[in-house]
Design a protein around this nucleic acid. Structure first.
Lengths: 226, 226
DNA sequence: GGGGCTTGTCACGCTATTGTCACATTTTCG
DNA sequence: CGAAAATGTGACAATAGCGTGACAAGCCCC
């Protein structure tokens, strides 16, 4: 549940490979389908966060897939269309059918990634309130501001993300592994006890509220329950 | 600075000439581009009040230009599309991509002028009263004017959009990625630290208010809270 | 064609941040 | 009680991140 799933529906294996490579580098979980029916099935069962859908598919084409995903309020899954240059008709039908965006082949991978992230961010924004609170601690992710009983904390970027993760799971124990994955990122290859040091620094800055961050011996850390 | 700038992107010189003549007669400042890339460049640097964009361009077509202007909140510049007769499909895509209106070729000059003025009026109305204020900084998006404590700032187009974005999200941290997406557009392929340079230039021009633009180390930039 | 303006990139230098280690302290459990 | 395991602590060297000055390319206007 940590990594977001992205589904690629595309008949050319080279392109799937290319996309998979870049998406995984960005930390996404990648699913692939080589034709329409397989894509539809995966979209239904896996409920990916986004689907990259080629329009030109043998047999069942991209639009058919889009129609298959249709519900009363748009497709079941957000869709980014991959269309061929000059096929203006494609763009129209696609957007009419509820696709979120499209890119024209041959596309710039960089731009594609930006659009993917923009769609996901839009999705995210729609459902997250921004201020997390717990035991006198308040953290506003958007403003990047954290306070204890109203007093502002001067946290570094890493400390901030650490506190944010703990707050998002307040009450639950977070293992060092989990913290490394979410706070430092999956690609971080380092000593698990680095976490300890940052917890210490965080506690120091929390001052009076330092004991809100509890150590669960043999497991990890958590925020004190109510 | 009084006259509004209008950019024409059109490959046929006759039509450019015709449009220029009538637009100047109406008191507009006219810029011209004969192809997509030149048009994009001018739109970015000159920030015209409106762009007349031909859909059928050799090489990079009108839609590509529109997409090049795309940011997270619509095109960088208002666009009126010039499409060929009967290509209704075009206009759907265009409007979906954020164009404000379209005119079918061959068009009546009179009608075109009316539409141009209509868009500008709409823009005016939508943006009037949209004076963003924060810590002594005032930014009037409509007239492209920014002041600090009443004193006018001589900002370039990019600096202006940067300040505008920060003001629209005042207090919130904007990452370099986000700034690149909204200020420069998705199709910008460049160095993230370009942002730093523009922040520096902006700060220099802000003079005494320079410290209103805060650096959030490891994250991005934001405007100081109240 | 030249001068001025804007823009994007780069290299350099400085500093806060960061990851790691060695050692101290606490807890667990035989 | 004492050893082993787990965590806290202080120190430190490397470096990531940022500010700054400089510069070349592109474009306008004259």
């Amino acid at each position: 549940m940590d990594k977001k799933k992205i589904l690629i529906v595309e008949d050319e294996a080279d392109i799937r490979e290319l996309l998979r490579y870049h998406l995984e580098r960005e930390g996404f979980d990648v699913l692939e389908a080589g034709d329409g029916p397989a894509g539809l099935a995966l979209a239904r069962t896996e409920q990916p966060a986004l689907m990259l859908l080629d329009v030109m598919l043998p047999g069942m084409d991209g639009f058919d897939v889009l129609r298959g995903l249709a519900t009363e309020n748009g497709p079941l899954v957000p869709v980014l269309l991959l269309t061929a240059r000059g096929e203006e008709v494609d763009r129209v039908v696609g957007l009419t059918l509820g696709a979120d965006d499209y890119v024209v082949k041959p596309f710039s991978v960089r731009e594609l990634m930006l659009r993917v992230k923009a769609i996901l961010r839009r999705q995210e924004r729609a459902r997250s309130g921004t201020v997390l609170r717990h035991h006198g601690i308040a953290l506003d992710a958007e403003r990047h501001r954290a306070t204890v009983n109203g007093e502002s904390l001067a946290l570094t970027a890493t400390e901030f993300r650490l506190l944010e993760d703990l707050l998002r799971h307040s009450g639950a124990v977070r293992t060092r592994e989990q913290l490394l994955n979410t706070v430092w990122g999956y690609s971080f290859e380092g000593y698990a006890r680095t976490v300890d040091t940052h917890v210490r620094r965080l506690r120091a800055k929390l001052g009076a509220a330092a004991d809100v961050v509890e150590t669960v011996r043999g497991v990890g850390y958590r925020l004190k329950e109510d």
